[in-house]
């Protein structure tokens, strides 16, 4: 009997909506996000400003649209850096093993022992804030968790008979790693990527919230929350909408990941 995979369905719909929302923000916003309209200061949500305006008279919808775009871009870039390097390191360590593997894994343990936001703080304290510095710092910090995940998968597969058989046929190691084994690890990697994506969104938001992420001229959801925290009770719309964007994005992607895991479990 096939059970409906609600996690995957709801997660996909939610993620698609949030991606559409973000994509919209790349091309169109109702107002210029940084434009201050003195007449609309502290305006609650209305037909003219759907999400209301902040203390400077800036349109919250426009800023949420643009902020979601930059948060998403940063999260994806962090994920790309972390996943690509983690994949390479994990695959080679898992496949070849040996002393190099042991050494690299101990380094990963050491890096994982520190909270990643704290380490990123240190890096950004040295390099200064800015989009690319955030991507670089968080990306490097995301490598160990991916490396460990990928390594575990490769350990599982490297002694399977189909891999031995490929070796006997004279298939080269790099081809065995990336063509024979890697596709088998996709379900696990995808679910790891969804978790990583969520962590990246949260890490970017927390860094911006702490004021060490993107520069004030580059809006991001985290930075908006930082800006709005003083007016949480007087101007709740300034907090609720950007926060809702973060929550919905993470919830959608998290559900997709859960759905993938459920489907994997069903397949096994």
């Amino acid at each position: 009997m096939k059970r409906k995979n609600w996690y995957l369905t709801i997660g996909t719909v939610l993620t698609a909506c949030m991606l559409a929302f973000t994509a919209l923000g790349l091309f169109w916003t109702p107002c210029v996000p940084s434009a201050m309209d003195a007449a609309a200061r502290n305006a609650p949500p209305s037909a003219a400003h759907l999400f209301g305006c902040d203390a400077y008279g800036r349109d919250v919808l426009s800023r949420t649209l643009e902020g979601a775009g930059s948060t998403l871009t940063i999260a994806l870039a962090v994920l790309a850096v972390g996943a690509a390097c983690g994949l390479a390191v994990g695959a080679l360590c898992g496949y070849y093993g040996g002393p190099a593997d042991a050494l690299i894994m101990r380094l990963c343990d050491a890096a994982a022992a520190f909270p990643s936001v704290l380490l990123a703080l240190v890096v950004l304290a040295i390099t200064g804030p800015g989009k690319y510095n955030v991507i670089g710092a968080l990306g490097v910090l995301f490598i160990p968790s991916f490396a460990r995940l990928v390594r575990g998968e490769f350990l599982k597969y490297r002694d399977r008979d189909f891999v031995k058989s490929a070796r006997l046929m004279g298939v080269r190691d790099m081809r065995i790693i990336f063509v024979h084994i890697l596709p088998n690890t996709w379900p696990t990697l995808l679910s790891g990527l969804t978790i990583g994506f969520n962590n990246a969104v949260l890490a970017e938001a927390s860094m911006s919230y702490l004021g060490i992420g993107v520069r004030p001229t580059e809006p991001s959801l985290g930075y908006m929350l930082k800006d709005a925290q003083g007016t949480l009770f007087t101007l709740p719309w300034c907090t609720v909408f950007p926060a809702a964007a973060v929550v919905l994005l993470i919830l959608g992607v998290g559900l997709v990941g859960e759905g993938i895991r459920e489907r994997m479990g069903a397949a096994e």
Partner: peptide
């Protein structure tokens, strides 16, 4: 050249995703 092996378990000796 290239002696080959046929394994006991045909579930494990064929790549499941191919």
């Amino acid at each position: 050249p290239r002696p080959q092996m046929v394994f006991q378990d045909p579930y494990g000796s064929l790549n499941p995703v191919k």
